[in-house]
């Protein structure tokens, strides 16, 4: 279960509306490397984890990703508050506006609605943790691209925070993978699925 806390994990204070930035930042909500996919990836991978510490990591990082989803949504909400119709009409955001007005809808920068194919659950601790490491790097790259394209320091600041979190999550998933590999059979020189041949007992 979850309990909602009425505050953002990191403040969002955007004073100037900006249709161009809203048009691209939506990708970190519902795009291929966005926060919705991130939270669903980790929270759904938990159940097949043979180790409680790794399941704990996925629970806690997955929960933090929900907080990041809310930060990106707050950025979008504030970027589109008080936008003039002229500004919308002349920006690429007009396409999104046509379907969603200024509601917050998870889609990619190219307008593709969120697709569960953005994340994977393989039910294998090595496979899933390897996926998670790549996912964190893909999200970091996306934030870096957004920071390159941002011309508003109010927007860049929370993006820099979110980028830094991807780096920390990568480190923590690296720890989880190392701890998993340490528990594999010592004759297993190659990192592969420890649950395929026999179910490992819980520690």
């Amino acid at each position: 279960m979850w309990i909602y806390e009425k505050k953002l994990q990191y403040p969002v204070r955007i004073k100037n509306p900006n249709a161009r930035l809203a048009h691209i930042i939506v990708s970190q909500l519902g795009g291929p490397d966005g926060e919705l996919g991130a939270s669903m990836r980790y929270l759904n991978q938990r159940y097949a984890m043979p180790y409680r510490d790794v399941a704990g990591m996925l629970t806690d990082v997955g929960t933090e990703e929900l907080a990041h989803l809310e930060i990106v949504a707050a950025i979008l909400h504030q970027l589109t508050a008080n936008l003039s119709e002229e500004e919308i009409a002349k920006s690429p955001f007009a396409a999104y506006f046509t379907d969603h007005t200024t509601g917050v809808y998870p889609a990619g920068a190219d307008g593709t609605p969120f697709n569960a194919r953005a994340f994977a659950v393989k039910g294998d601790v090595i496979t899933d943790l390897s996926e998670d490491l790549a996912a964190e790097q893909k999200a970091r790259t996306t934030y870096e691209n957004l920071i390159r394209l941002s011309d508003d320091p109010d927007v860049t600041e929370p993006l820099r925070y979110l980028r830094a979190r991807e780096i920390v999550h990568f480190q923590r998933f690296g720890d989880a993978l190392t701890r998993t590999q340490e528990r594999l059979d010592s004759r297993n020189f190659y990192a592969f699925n420890p649950v395929y041949d026999k179910i490992q007992p819980r520690e």
Binding site: E5, L8, R13
Partner: peptide
């Protein structure tokens, strides 16, 4: 105001919905 719904302790008014939501600029 309350951070969680269960922290809404006012006996005559449901304070949970009285303060701005976190995504509002004013809340930040």
């Amino acid at each position: 105001g309350p951070l969680t719904a269960t922290a809404s302790e006012n006996a005559v008014s449901w304070d949970w919905i009285k303060t701005p939501w976190p995504w509002e600029l004013v809340a930040n």
